[in-house]
Nucleic acid binder design. Structure first.
Length: 422
RNA sequence: GGAGAGAUGGCCGAGUAGGUCGAAGGCGCUCGCCUGCUAAGCGAGUAUACUGGGAAACCGGUAUCGAGGGUUCGAAUCCCUCUCUCUCCGCCA
């Protein structure tokens, strides 16, 4: 959510910067609505001040028969207040609904662009493996090895669900533990295991609602949603709180499954593990002071990259352009891992600085010192990493001519020493 | 699922025959004094949001005692609904 006062004073500039996202944003109605709201508010508050004053006078008079006129008058005033407050409530609801649907302003450092083609490659790491044979896609490898069963997933649930079996299940679990250990033991994140369903307030706090309800799985009967990412519960840990500056930065890591409807992606990545309705992810979340958030974004990115480096998987880092960053983000780096089966880099992590956008929605503040006014923190998060896609990358990059897969050395302690799958 | 109890400021905790309660008291914290030694004492201050005025410091208004609604001139205090917490029973991993 944008600062309403900032919007008021910088309407044209904001409109211009939001347009670089590629969607038409018109803030004209905002000004009228804002003026109307403040006008109603003033009228209502003036009447309330009057009522408070007169009611106070009434309370001092013992013989109420002497103040019947005032009581009658205030009865009328109360009616007027009620009418004004009804209109005010409508205006406020409309205004907040509007504000909740306006995306974040891209950071000045976010490259301006009109499509993902304008994303900027920041760096590449690792060597793309050369195969003496035609590398197979992971779904073939997984099925042949008997560790991924897509048909069974479809039988149990439906399309875009997969059953892991044997060493496949073990590999997924090994990756989760490997990532969590790395981030907690070496990168100083606090491990969190949050609820996998959250309420509407939490979804609104991080920006999934109200705009993207169609992307979420919602429970029948209660107003709970399956989380699309651990970002939601973990960021909302401090919703409505005022933190101490000495508590910052706060760094959390959490493993959770993620549930996404993937509406509008029909026909895309229909085979394999790339796009699932349920997938595992280890997430990194930070709460930091505003002037540190961009430095923290770089270290967050580095922490995520470290996973791929230790697994010796080639990747590149991409600085997303204004047209490609998410609704709540001011700046986003994607990490894309090399997939020999697709002969392409594919997203495996997305690391974003939301600045105060989520903090304002979720009211997450901090105090510089005991006397200072509360200020909004900056929130960041990134995948560290998407586990299913990491498994895909391992299968495809570490596949051998005979269809077996070598286990990356860093992972072997988590696989009871297993060196080869198959 | 059944029965009961409760939700007050950073924390603890008063306040229910409606008014002088943004809310006693204590703790914590901040500043000052004193003392002088890693403590105690004394004094003052110590919520948030919105809003009007002001360059600002700041001053004024409104709201907030779990949430929402109602009664009333006036509600932390009365009524209704919801949420959450705790205790007991049942059930269950």
């Amino acid at each position: 959510m944008l600062d309403i006062k900032f919007l008021r004073d910088n309407l044209e500039e904001t409109e211009r910067r939001l347009k670089t996202r590629g969607e038409a944003v018109t803030l004209g109605a905002f000004r009228d609505l804002d003026l109307q709201r403040r006008d109603l508010l003033q009228k209502s508050e003036n009447l309330k001040a009057l009522r408070n004053r007169v009611s106070d006078e009434i309370s001092r008079v013992k013989d109420k028969s002497q103040v019947q006129d005032q009581i009658a008058e205030m009865r009328d005033v109360s009616q007027q207040i009620k009418a004004l407050d009804d209109r005010l409530g409508e205006a406020e609801a409309e205004l907040s609904q509007f504000l909740l649907t306006v995306p974040n302003i891209p950071s000045a450092s976010t490259p301006v662009g009109s499509s993902e083609a304008d994303n900027v490659e920041v760096r590449k790491w690792g060597n793309i493996p050369a195969f003496a044979f035609t590398p197979k896609p992971h779904w073939e490898l997984g099925e042949q090895l008997g560790i991924l069963d897509f048909e069974c997933g479809a039988k149990l649930t439906g399309a875009r669900f997969t059953l892991y079996r044997g060493q496949g299940a073990r590999l997924e679990r090994a990756l989760i533990n490997f990532m969590l250990d790395l981030h907690t033991e070496r990168h100083n994140y606090v491990e969190i295991l949050p609820p996998f369903m959250v309420n509407r307030d939490s979804m609104t706090g991080t920006g999934q609602l109200p705009k993207f309800e169609d992307d979420l799985f919602r429970l029948d009967g209660v107003d709970y949603f399956l989380i699309p990412t651990a970002e939601v519960p973990v960021t909302n840990i401090h919703r409505g709180e005022i933190l101490k500056s000495t508590d910052l930065p706060l760094r959390y890591t959490a493993y959770t499954p993620c549930f996404r409807k993937e509406a509008g992606s029909y026909g895309k990545d229909t085979r394999g593990l790339i796009r699932q309705h349920q997938f595992n992810k280890v997430e990194l979340v930070k709460f930091v002071q505003p002037d540190e958030s961009y430095a923290e974004l770089e270290t967050l990115l580095a922490d995520a990259e470290k996973v791929l480096q230790l697994l010796e998987l080639p990747y590149r880092v991409v600085d997303l352009c204004t047209a490609d960053i998410g609704f709540s983000a001011a700046k986003t780096y994607d990490i894309e891992v090399w997939l020999p089966g697709q002969n392409a880099y594919r997203e495996i992590s997305s690391c974003s600085n939301f600045e105060d956008f989520q903090a304002r929605r979720a009211s997450i503040r901090y105090r510089e010192d005991d006397k200072a006014k509360p200020e909004f923190v900056h929130t960041l998060n990134g995948s560290g990493l998407a586990v299913g896609r990491t498994l895909v990358a391992i299968l495809e990059n570490y596949q051998q001519a005979d269809g077996t897969v070598t286990v990356p050395e860093a992972l072997r302690p988590y696989m009871a020493g297993t060196e080869t799958i198959g």
